[in-house]
Amino acid sequence: MIQEPAPQAAEEHGVDIGELLLHHTADAYELDFEPLFTAHWDPHLLEFHVGPMLINLTPTKHVVFMVLAAVLVFLTMYLAGRALERQRAGERAPRGLANAIEGIALWVRKDIAIDNIGLDGAKFAPYIMSVFFFILYCNLLGLVPWGASPTGNLAVTAALAILSLVIIEVSGMLKLGFRGYMRTIFPTVPGIEGGGAAVLSVALGPIEFLGKLVKPFALAVRLFGNMTAGHFVILALFGMIFLFGNLGVFSWAIGVGSAALVLAIMLLELIVAFVQAYVFTLITAVLIGVMQHEH
């Protein structure tokens, strides 16, 4: 998709677009707020050996932005809740930003959680709402100047997907009981009895098991792919300025064209940020609902 420019071209302009792309979308042990300030730190600050593997818990750029997103989500929700309580105490109708936040939060609760999970939806609603707003804020942070979106990191989306997988399966096990849960892996096929049914159940087992794992995997890759691809496109369009900036007379036209395209893609990314947060939570809710109503 992205053509890396020939090495000599990079040397000529002093910019390697492919390197720039990957550098800006990748995680790093640094914060880059040029020209205000930059911060670097030791990548091996917090390393742990657990058995055969090495876990590096040193905070990265994405960790910093993830914490920022979490703080912003909490502040938004907390202040909205406070404002609502004040307005409600005065017997006034809700209004302003608090009302907008309340509307979105309750839309997530009702339309994503309760409508897809069913009667037990209210129980899962806090998780669904948290996931929605966390992913949304992470996505949006990537569109802010100097920002980075933690959801453009496969480890982050994988962690969220694994959490969803655990919740889906554990809630299913609690709801269906052990026998009922095992039946979701070794299904009874209607219309077949005796030995044939047993053989079919065992044969379908690996497929069903893989299916359980594939769904969260798809969640993780979808979110990661969408966020990263958006950044790639924006950066590639900016890269055009550096590639063709030495055309002389028309250099300004390149700048203006690129900026216009980037603006358009940014607006599209704004929609994508909402849509991907919606899709992740919606599919999680649907999968929880499917497990709740499996028989």
Binding site: D27, L46, M53, I55, N56, L57, T58, P59, T60, H62, V63, M66, V67, A70, V73, F74, M77, Y78, A80, G81, R82, L84, E85, I101, E102, A105, L106, R109, A125, P126, Y127, M129, S130, V131, F133, F134, P150, N153, L154, A155, V156, A158, A159, L160, I162, L163
Partner: peptide, 29 residues
């Protein structure tokens, strides 16, 4: 994929979840 980041994500997200559940969602809901 940085496994450390997976753990960070869980820590951050679960703290957020706990805080929201305790302080932010009850008034709204």
């Amino acid at each position: 994929v940085n496994p450390g980041l997976i753990i960070w994500t869980w820590v951050v997200f679960l703290s957020l979840f706990w805080l929201l559940r305790k302080y932010a969602f009850p008034p709204i809901v």
